[in-house]
C-alpha cells in the first residue's frame, strides 16, 4: 500500500518535532497510545495565558508513517488557534488532508486524542480559565 504524497512529505520533513518543558505552567502535554499497533504519540502545546492562543506545538511519535504525518499535521493545525478552536479539529479532517486509507484511520484518531489530551492537561493547570464563550 503506497503512502500519499502528503504523508510522505510529513514523514520526510516532519514539522515541529521535539519537546517542550512539560513542567512549565503554560505547556500542556498529551501522551496517547494505539493498542491496535503499539504506536505512541506525544503532543505538546504552549498557550498564551491571556488569549488562550496556542503559540507553539511540538510532537514526538514512535510509529508508522501515517501516525507521524498525522501528528505533524496536527501540530501545524493547532498553532495559532485558541484551545477551543483546536478542540474542533476532527480526525476526519486529518484523514481527508492526508488521504489516509481505512486501515490507517486509527492514526488520525490518535492525533485527535493527543490534541484533546494536551488541551485538557493545560486546562487542568489553569482551573480559572473556564471554557470561554465562542463568539458567533
Amino acid at each position: 500500500m503506497a503512502y500519499s504524497d502528503k504523508v510522505v512529505d510529513h514523514y520526510n520533513n516532519p514539522r515541529n518535532v521535539g519537546s517542550l518543558d512539560k513542567s512549565q505552567d503554560d505547556v500542556g502535554t498529551g501522551l496517547v497510545g494505539a493498542p491496535e499497533c503499539g504506536d505512541v504519540m506525544k503532543l505538546q502545546i504552549q498557550v498564551d495565558d491571556s488569549s488562550g492562543v496556542i503559540e507553539d506545538a511540538k510532537f514526538k511519535t514512535f510509529g508508522c508513517g501515517s501516525a507521524i504525518a498525522s501528528s505533524s499535521l496536527a501540530t501545524e493545525w493547532v498553532k495559532g488557534k485558541t484551545v477551543d478552536e483546536a478542540l474542533d479539529i476532527k480526525n476526519t479532517d486529518i484523514v481527508k488532508e492526508l488521504s489516509l486509507p481505512p486501515v490507517k484511520i486509527h492514526c488520525s484518531v490518535l492525533a485527535e486524542d493527543a490534541i484533546k489530551a494536551a488541551i485538557s492537561d493545560w486546562k487542568a493547570k489553569h482551573p480559572a480559565e473556564a471554557p470561554a464563550e465562542t463568539a458567533g
Partner: peptide, 17 residues
C-alpha cells in the same frame, strides 16, 4: 480494549522508545 493504557505504562513505553 481500545481505551488508553494507564498513563504510567505509556510513559514508560515512550521512554524506552
Amino acid at each position: 480494549d481500545s481505551s488508553q493504557a494507564p498513563a504510567s505504562m505509556l510513559m514508560e513505553v515512550f521512554e524506552i522508545n
